[in-house]
Design a protein around this nucleic acid. Structure first.
Lengths: 120, 120
DNA sequence: GTTTTTCTACGATATTTTTCGTAATTAACG
DNA sequence: CGTTAATTACGAAAAATATCGTAGAAAAAC
């Protein structure tokens, strides 16, 4: 059961998206949206490695990191925790509100309907 | 734009649920699930008041607090932030996963279908 | 081959959040 | 009354996160 901090989650997302990456690559990505020092990113990734959230392999002189936790599983856990803390545990009221706020495309709506058919 | 911490959110939920409450009442509620000192709860509620997350009124000698932010609005903001940080901004993939993990009742499914009809 | 750049490791500092202790005040109780 | 209990204010410590600086090693550039 992992509990990534905000900074950690940001890095996890990049790694899920990009696949195995160097600290430099992740730091460059992060700096597209805000200023972060290289050693800050390095440190966080080292800590994550220490907690077994990331695996790393030596690629010559430097390290390549990748997520050690699956995206789906992690999201599932985060979702559960979020529903608890912000919606008092009610998945349904969360989903209703999410759908209510979101302008969905026809394709997206179809996809959800299909999912619902399968469930009901 | 508020950004409640975890402890603050826990208190907000209780206040939304219970309506105006004293520190004692909130602290008692909190202690049903975990140990928290009275002054800890007091301090957090005072900080929240300072940030205008809570209003308070003097009720004789003690204070009665109530949420100064609406549940719906706050949840909407939290949702947006959560979808960003955990699902890369995709509301739809979050909803799909939430529905996939959740065993919904027939009534709940109907409700969502109705909502979807209204949208599409 | 010397200088510059690029890494890692790691300690130290800063910031944010949570928790608690103490003092002062007021109410309640006997 | 005088004592006990409950309440607020507030400073300070503790814990959790995030940021950075420096040193040392290795590679790259010149």
């Amino acid at each position: 059961m992992i509990k990534p901090t905000e900074a950690e989650l940001e890095i996890l997302q990049l790694l899920w998206q990009r696949g195995p990456s160097s600290v430099r690559e992740i730091n460059d990505e992060l700096n597209k949206s805000r200023d972060v020092g290289y050693t800050t990113t390095l440190k966080i990734m080292q800590l994550m490695h220490g907690k077994n959230i990331l695996n790393r392999t030596e690629q010559g002189r430097y390290h390549v990191y990748e997520a050690a936790v699956s995206q789906e599983n992690t999201q599932k856990q985060l979702l559960e925790k979020f529903v608890d803390s912000a919606f008092g545990g009610s998945t349904m009221s969360m989903v209703m509100q999410a759908l209510g706020n979101h302008k969905a495309s026809k394709e997206e709506l179809e996809e959800i309907k299909k999912l619902l058919e399968g469930m009901g």
